[in-house]
Structures are given as C-alpha cells and as structure tokens.
C-alpha cells in the first residue's frame, strides 16, 4: 500500500515527533509511506472562518499532491474530516472536481481509523506502562466515527490501562481561532475538560488531534499541573524514538 502522509500544519511546526511516530506506525503496518514535500495546510482555518475561496485553493493543492496515492493518512481527525467531508462541499459546483474530491476522500483516513480498520495493525511498535485517559476530538468522532479505533489500538498494548473520563466526547474548547477569539469561553471549556481528566487519576491524557492537546496542556500547565503527561496517540502507540 502506498500511503501519502499528510503531516498537518500543526504537527509540522509544533510537534514533529508525532509525525515521525505516525510514520513508524504506518511502516509497522506494512505501508510504503510517502511524504509529499510541498504540502502545507488542509485549509480548515480559512474554511471555518468563512474564507471559502482560500480553502478551495488549498483543496486543489491537496488534490494535486495526494490524488495519486492508494491512501492518504493524517494524524488528525479534524484535518481528515476537512478533506473527506468538507472538500466535497467546497467543490460542489464543479461535478468533475467534486467526483475527484469524493474519490480521494474515500481513501483518506484519520491515523487510528486507518491502523485499526484498513491496515489492521495488531502489534504496536511502542510500549506504554500505566493508566491513561482518552479525549475524543470532535471532528474525528462526529465526522469520521472515530471512537472505538483508538481504544482498540490502545487496549492491544499490554501495559495500558484506559481510565475513561466523564464526557470524553465533549469539546475541549479549542475550535481553532475560537480559542483566541473567545478565549474566556474556550478556557472554561478546557477547564471543565481538565477537571474530568484529573478525576480519572490516569496521569496521562491522550488524544488524536494536536490542537485539542495543546489547548488541554496549556490549561493544565497554567493551573499548575506540571506532571500530567499530554500525548498524541501516535506517540503512545509507536513509543518514543530511540
């Protein structure tokens, strides 16, 4: 399987290690991973802010770079949702383009969804000892039905105990530009999430979208919690690099 890997702009600049962890997982699942080097952003920030024109330009750029692969995989439910669910909306007025969007969308997957349902990775390359709790990011959950996949992958690791938090599916308050424009509201939502995380006594909060994780980590640290580990699921499944 030739897999085009879309790093996502956030992982590219903020947490490269998540990108490399994801590649290790894909390779462990027997994929040939290719990273198109001109890739940048999926266009979601503009799309969700009403800048449809720019978002469409980025959709076209994505199509040109990724259309040729058997699969496209992203370590983010929100960017994968953008491609699979919203690119067709952006291109709905052009039937030929729409068909291309739908076709590539059908081959585009969030990382854990791909590992669990397509590549059927059984043995995780990483090791993890201890309890963790999982936050379900909104787009992955509601646009791509990612809920069981990360839990199944985590459960396959011998040392992992999953302590479910209450309201794991409630938004953490990130919401892209929302987190800056409506900072107070966003902070309160993050705060609620942090309380639910603390109540699990898990010690590690894991998620599949870096945006949510930065938001949660930012609030944890500001609250003086310097010990709770905040990890992307790729880092847990792949282990840290030697």
């Amino acid at each position: 399987m030739r897999v085009g890997f879309f790093v996502t702009c956030l992982v590219d600049s903020m947490r490269p290690r998540i990108g490399f962890a994801a590649i290790r997982l894909l390779e462990a699942a027997g994929c040939e991973v290719i990273v198109p080097e001109q890739q940048t952003c999926c266009g979601q920030p503009g799309y969700n802010s009403g800048d449809r024109k720019s978002a469409k330009a980025m959709a076209l750029k994505f199509l040109a770079e990724f259309e040729a692969f058997d699969y496209v995989v992203l370590p983010s439910g929100s960017c994968a949702g953008m491609i699979r669910v919203h690119y067709p909306d952006l291109c709905k007025d052009d039937p030929a383009l729409l068909a291309r969007c739908i076709a590539v969308g059908a081959r585009t997957f969030e990382l854990t969804d791909f590992l669990a349902n397509i590549a059927k990775l059984k043995k995780m390359p990483g090791t993890f000892q201890g309890a963790l709790t999982y936050h379900d990011s909104c787009s992955g959950l509601r646009e791509l039905d990612v809920y069981k996949q990360p839990r199944a992958l985590l459960a396959s690791m011998p040392g992992v105990a999953i302590n479910e938090m209450v309201e794991s599916t409630t938004c953490c308050g990130f919401g892209g530009t929302f987190s800056v424009k409506y900072g107070e509201l966003s902070t309160r939502m993050a705060d609620n999430k942090c309380q639910h995380i603390a109540a699990t006594h898990a010690g590690t909060i894991v998620g599949g979208d870096l945006g949510c994780l930065l938001n949660i980590e930012g609030r944890l640290r500001r609250n003086g919690d310097s010990t709770t580990r905040v990890m992307h699921i790729a880092e847990v499944l792949a282990g840290t690099e030697k």
């Binding site: 990108g19 080097e37 966003s186 980590e217």
Partner: peptide
C-alpha cells in the same frame, strides 16, 4: 485570548519538514 487563561506549549524547535 489564549494566554490570558492558558500557557502556550512551545514548539519543539525544528519543523517536521526540516527533519524529514
């Protein structure tokens, strides 16, 4: 809006594409 209520976790220092 972000930093009034939260810290901002710093990036690692190099971009993915650089390392790659």
């Amino acid at each position: 809006g972000w930093t009034d209520g939260r810290d901002f976790p710093a990036p690692e220092g190099l971009t993915f594409r650089e390392i790659y």
